[in-house]
Design a protein around this nucleic acid. Structure first.
Length: 905
RNA sequence: GGGCGCUUAGCUCAGCUGGUCCAGAGCACCUGUCUUACACACAGGGGGUCGGGGGUUCGAAUCCCUCAGCGCCCACCA
């Protein structure tokens, strides 16, 4: 068994085979028939065409940390994997490939295009899942789902029909966000506002010839005019009215009056509408119902027609004057402004920054467009979702996102779900095209005949559904809904959802609504929101900036454990983290180094424990020494604290606490102190006790670290000697728990004094520049009998770790040397005669005395403060008195030493 | 225009419910050391008026107000 191990850990040799072995053993599989309490996470399904990026690296590391922890706790842990067809995104990718071949999707036609996308998805669709394996994700891969799977498609259809039957899905004619490049409608959430520096154009609209208004300014030809302001002057070609506030005294006489719409030869009426803000601009607003949502509403209210002047590609169409037809919207803007200028109708142009919506997939400026689309009525769905957050059935971490969530739900607007795309779930709606029948058919099974007129002349709605319309069902559609499956019964509701906060509205809020509506319960109890992974300059990582980090490169160079350690210990919930893409060593070196440290601790254990069967702690109970009791006590506390941190979703704390136990306590202290005993230099009984404790402590440390660094911990754990009947893998070993019987506050305090003494001696040695190899004598005074016994028992450790030569308890601080006082009051003196520079020491002592005098003065001042003494709790005041006494004593002692140093010469 | 968050060592960040984890960690830096698990290491060290100002309190990095800078979310002001 004990093959020789290299002094350096090579993750590449370990990770792949270990992962395959885990999978073969079926450790990731979740059994719905199990009696164990379930724990479920569904993966935020990555886009099929997306390559793994650092955001996935963080997000999925978090999920794996949680799922592994719960699995070790004995829960029936299901991590449900899968991918999303990602409608627009995927279609765009394939269209781009086609463009490279000089073709468009229309050249292929719908069917051939779809075949092409499926082919593409078939090639790339599973890649990201393989990449997740590389970072160690323990998903139940046999349950992998895709949003376009037949089962999930059935769920989509069922939901559509149910909502339609309930009156919550309807077809509406209104302004939606339209991407002129993707040629589809978008939901409000998919139009991302971006601060843009633009201009506010003030245009003059002369009154029609037969109208007059004394209060208005006039053109040189004498005609009075109104001024309207707009950021999109080209839309004036589609104006059908000008609106003013009904009570705006400047315009009360103008209600119903017509104005000439320049460039068009049309006249449009002035209408009163309370929406208009009289304070803004001139108080007169141009109304373009077909190209602005507010204008549309005002037009509806006032019975004003809409005139659409743009094609789907946002090119000026034939409804506009001939001069502008065929122009792109931005070119049209330029020319309209120029025309106004030439006519003397351009009042002024102001710089203006405002939020312009952009397509979240291709960044094209979105155009508001009037069209027929399918919508989901959201208010009825939002109410229960709001209640679920308010009464704590769903909890957000960090908590502050609860408010963001609530705010969105309180102001929710209907969801535009139809997309003019080909890639996605076809809308399950048919229209009867037979003469005189206009039936709309919404059914679960494809209809052959119109139920009203019996005609077979049916036409399915050409559009597909928003990709999020399948994602919002993910927590139950993946478990077999709408069928009643064992999986659903066992694993719904899920427990934890881990996601970036950027899709709180797109996905998380909608899942909660869908879960409550269709399952009658929330989809998950906890929502853990990660931060965003940025670069060291605080910029979001993106392909276009070239500042991304490829997680696979990191895995290759540093190992998956290093990647996970870095992202998991680096950021708390909701906290962004910055990683330097130019210096991967800086970012991931520490993680790799730590993995190597773990590896070497394992090597050490292997060398000292050998092939011997594990000695159970019970058998050495009577032979335990102070360091043994100390490390076991610390292990119990670490287990408790790590568990608590995990339960509170303080994942970085959990990881760091496990790290601290392993490195700061086990490796730095226990291992070093136990070495002579492990070598058998202090007898067999002592050796056996140390062996048993080392095995137990290392075992515990590996388990506590496993959720963060599954590979290296498993590799080491498997090599530890084990008792008959122990499991093969740390994966199925129990999560460490508190062992109250191990906890021993007295032992902790006592060992802490030994540690303190060692540190003090090391300090003195370093400070005085004592030769590393040179041993020094040590005198200790004012010790309790217990401490004296502990120190005597720790002689070996003092020798090895602090290079102490002999230990005396006389405490006589004579001659050249350095002294210190431990917390317990023990006085330490290290004679340094002959080993140091006396002048330097004298200077140092003088500085120290000065420093202490300062402290004494400060403390005295504090104690002179009447209000402090009378108002602060007695123990606090007492503590200050003790401190003062300590400082004074110490100062006097050092002053004495300074004098002694003088005499010694 | 609302709402939220951040500002702690040169860098990246921890510091939960105000008083022994209160000034911390990692990296970087400095000084030693190849001490037979690990130089991807060990030991030691320097460095911060906890963004500025004010307040509450016996006591604040920690609570309140305010100012400044940065960032995010939401919003129909053309």
């Amino acid at each position: 068994m004990a093959e020789p191990l290299a002094p350096q850990y090579n993750p590449r040799e370990t990770e792949g085979t270990l992962y395959r072995w885990w999978e073969e053993q079926g450790y990731f599989r979740a059994d719905p028939g199990s009696e164990r309490e379930p724990y479920t996470i569904v993966i935020p399904p990555p886009n099929v065409t997306a390559p793994l990026h650092m955001g996935h690296g963080l997000n999925n590391s978090v999920q794996d940390m949680l799922i592994r922890w719960r699995r070790m706790q004995g829960r029936e842990a299901l991590w449900q994997p899968g991918t999303d067809h990602a409608g627009i995104a995927t279609q765009n990718v394939v269209e781009r490939i086609l463009a490279g071949e000089g073709k468009t999707r229309y050249d292929l036609g719908r069917e051939a295009f779809m075949a092409r996308v499926w082919e593409f998805v078939g090639q790339t669709g599973g890649t990201i899942l393989d990449q997740l394996r590389a970072i160690g994700c323990s998903c139940d891969w046999e349950r992998t789902r895709f949003t376009l799977d037949p089962g999930l498609s059935r769920a989509v259809r069922e939901v559509f029909v149910r909502l339609y039957e309930k009156g919550l899905i309807y077809r509406g004619h209104r302004i939606i966000h339209w991407c002129p490049r993707c040629l589809t409608a978008l939901s409000d959430e998919e139009a991302e506002p971006e601060e843009t520096h633009g201009r506010l154009y003030h245009l003059r609209y002369p009154l029609a010839a037969d109208a007059d208004a004394p209060g208005l300014p006039r053109l040189p030809d004498g005609r009075p005019y109104l001024v309207v302001a707009t950021t999109r002057p080209e839309t004036m070609l589609g104006d059908t009215a000008v609106a003013v506030h009904p009570e705006d005294e400047r315009y009360t006489g103008l209600h119903g009056v017509r104005v000439d719409l320049p460039l068009t030869g049309r006249t449009v009426p002035v209408v009163p509408d309370a929406f208009v803000d009289p304070e803004f601009g001139t108080g007169a607003v141009k109304i373009t119902p077909a190209h602005d949502p507010n204008d549309f509403e005002m037009a509806e209210r006032n019975g004003i027609p809409a005139l659409d002047i743009l094609t789907p590609e946002a090119i000026v169409n034939d409804n506009a004057p001939e001069a502008f037809r065929g122009l792109d919207r931005f070119e049209a803007r330029r020319q309209v402004v120029q025309a106004f200028q030439e006519l003397g109708l351009l009042e002024k142009v102001e710089e203006h920054t405002h939020a312009v919506p952009h397509c979240y997939r291709c960044d094209t400026v979105v155009e508001p467009r009037l069209s027929d689309q399918w919508f989901v009525k959201m208010k009825p769905l939002a109410e229960p979702a709001l209640a679920a957050a308010r009464d704590g059935r769903v909890r957000f971490t960090p908590e502050r996102f609860t408010r963001t969530y609530e705010h969105w739900l309180e102001n929710i607007r209907d969801w535009c779900i139809s997309r003019q795309l080909w890639w996605g779930h076809r809308i399950p709606v048919w229209y009867c095209r037979s003469e005189g029948c206009s039936e709309t058919i919404v059914v679960r099974e494809d209809p052959a005949h119109c139920p009203r007129c019996g005609s077979g002349h049916l036409e399915q709605d050409p559009d597909v559904l928003d990709t999020w319309f399948s994602s919002w069902l993910w927590p139950f559609s993946t478990l077999g809904w709408p069928d009643d499956t064992p999986e659903l019964r066992k694993f719904y509701p899920n427990d934890t959802l881990v996601s970036g906060h950027d899709i709180l509205f797109f996905w998380i809020a909608r899942m909660i609504m869908a879960g409550l509506e269709f399952m009658g319960d929330v989809p998950f109890r906890d929502v853990y929101l990660t931060g965003i992974v940025r670069d060291h300059l605080g910029r979001k990582m993106s392909k276009s900036l070239g500042n991304g980090i490829d997680p696979l490169v990191v895995v290759d160079r540093f190992g998956a454990d290093a990647l996970r350690y870095t992202v998991l210990t680096n950021a708390g919930a909701g906290t962004d983290q910055g990683l330097n893409y130019e210096d991967l060593e800086e970012a991931f070196g520490p993680g790799r180094n730590f993995a190597n440290k773990v590896w070497n601790a394992g090597r050490f254990a292997l060398m000292t424990l050998g092939d011997a069967e594990r000695v159970p702690l019970e058998r050495v109970a009577d032979a335990l020494e102070l360091p043994d009791r100390w490390i076991l006590s610390r292990l119990s506390r670490a287990a408790d604290e790590v568990t608590q941190a995990l339960e509170r979703f303080r994942l970085n704390e959990a990881g760091l606490r496990a790290y601290e136990f392993f490195r700061g306590e086990l490796a730095d202290w226990y291992l070093e102190v136990a070495k002579p005993r492990l070598r058998g230099e202090l007898g067999d009984a002592s050796r056996d006790a140390a062996r048993a404790v080392l095995a137990a402590a290392l075992d515990g440390a590996m388990r506590l670290l496993h959720p963060v660094m599954p590979f290296i911990t498993e590799a080491v754990w498997q090599r530890l000697p084990r008792a008959a009947g122990d499991p093969e893998s740390i994966m199925v070993a129990a999560w460490p728990e508190r062992v109250p019987g191990w906890e021993d506050a007295a032992a902790e305090a006592r060992f802490a004094e030994v540690q303190a003494l060692i540190v003090v001696v090391r300090n003195i040695r370093a400070e005085y520049g004592v030769q590393p190899g040179r041993r020094v004598p040590l005198r200790v005074a004012s010790v309790s009998p217990e401490l004296r016994a502990d120190l005597e028992a720790s002689l070996r450790a003092l020798r090895d770790l602090a290079r102490v030569e002999e230990l005396a308890f006389d405490g006589a601080a004579e001659g050249v040397g350095a002294s210190a006082v431990l917390r317990s009051g023990a006085e330490v003196f290290v004679p340094l005669a002959g080993a140091i520079d006396v002048d330097r020491e004298r200077t140092r002592l003088r500085d120290e005395v000065t420093r202490l005098e300062g402290l004494v003065a400060a403390t005295e001042r504090k104690l002179d403060n009447e209000s402090f003494v009378s108002r602060a709790p007695a123990e606090v005041v007492q503590k200050e008195r003790d401190k003062l006494a300590g400082y004074t004593e110490q100062r006097d002692k050092l002053a004495g030493k300074l004098a002694a140093l003088g005499r010694a010469e």
